[in-house]
């Protein structure tokens, strides 16, 4: 059987929110080590990879690896009923045809329980190699969210270039061009406000702003976001979840013909 108890249930709610605009049906893979998700959007240009270690849970038992096939719009409806401070409990039998969800709140004394029918989802899995990227940038996730949101008024494609000058986001459209440059900045006492740029060689790639905006739904999960780029490769946009896991997005670059 599978049983997991997460004191801060809100983390799981935020994970669901971070992927539900990209994919509809998803398998949550449960193993003795972690809960994980790998899925692509319907156009297969973006991929989400989520991992939440068993150490994130107060109680974690998984006798046999299993996949929980979920419809995210339905899961999201159930999580709307979860309170901010609720503890979440997930339970499934090895046959995995339904998932039990419980939201408990000690303060108010409430226990809400739901039974969700599971689906068999055929999903293509890709092997994503652990590549050394030419540029790695760490920046406040709220800044990244603001930049990709603001640039949407200029156009639908964002050029991200990493040079020794800094990290530049540019968008061009009918009304003109906008550029936002982020320089390395480690002046603040708070590490989460730092911008660090680790560049082996300059990289310049184009991406669909629509997708970059989808990815920023993970902003509440992490104060910092890590961007990794190499020439001609999908960008990696990683939101670490404390020391317990991550949500990573991969997006294929737009190539110029």
């Amino acid at each position: 059987m599978f049983e997991a108890r997460l004191a801060n249930g809100n983390i799981f709610k935020m994970i669901v929110e971070s992927i539900r605009e990209l994919v509809v049906d998803v398998n949550i893979d449960c193993s003795t080590e972690e809960l994980s998700i790998q899925c692509m959007d319907s156009a297969h240009v973006a991929l989400v990879s989520m991992s939440l270690s068993q150490s994130a849970f107060d109680h974690f038992r998984c006798d046999r690896s299993l996949s929980l096939g979920l419809n995210l719009p339905n899961v999201s409806k159930i999580f709307k009923m979860m309170g901010r401070d609720d503890t979440m409990v997930l339970k499934a039998e090895d046959s995995a045809d339904k998932l039990m969800l419980m939201f408990e709140n000690d303060k108010s004394g409430t226990i809400a329980d739901f039974e969700l029918k599971l689906m068999a989802i055929e999903a293509e899995q890709l092997g994503v190699p652990d590549t050394a990227y030419k540029c790695s940038i760490s920046m406040p996730s709220s800044e990244f969210q603001r930049i990709v949101r603001d640039l949407q008024v200029m156009g639908d494609t964002c050029k991200i270039s990493c040079t020794k000058e800094g990290l530049k986001f540019s968008a061009t459209g009918q009304i003109g061009t906008g550029n936002i440059l982020m320089r390395q900045n480690v002046a603040s006492e708070k590490e989460e406000d730092h911008v660090t740029i680790d560049m082996e060689e300059p990289v310049e790639l184009n991406f669909a702003l629509r997708y970059l905006n989808f990815f920023t739904k993970a902003t509440p999960l992490s104060p910092t976001v890590i961007l990794k780029m190499s020439p001609g490769l999908p960008i990696v946009i990683e939101y670490p979840i404390e020391q317990l896991g991550h949500v990573k997005y991969y997006l294929a670059p737009k190539m110029e013909e």
Binding site: H44, L233, A252, K254
Partner: peptide, 14 residues
């Protein structure tokens, strides 16, 4: 003019 390849052209199928 831009074109976008699917992730299959970058990553191997498992």
């Amino acid at each position: 003019i831009f074109f976008q390849c699917t992730l299959r052209s970058y990553f191997q199928k498992k």
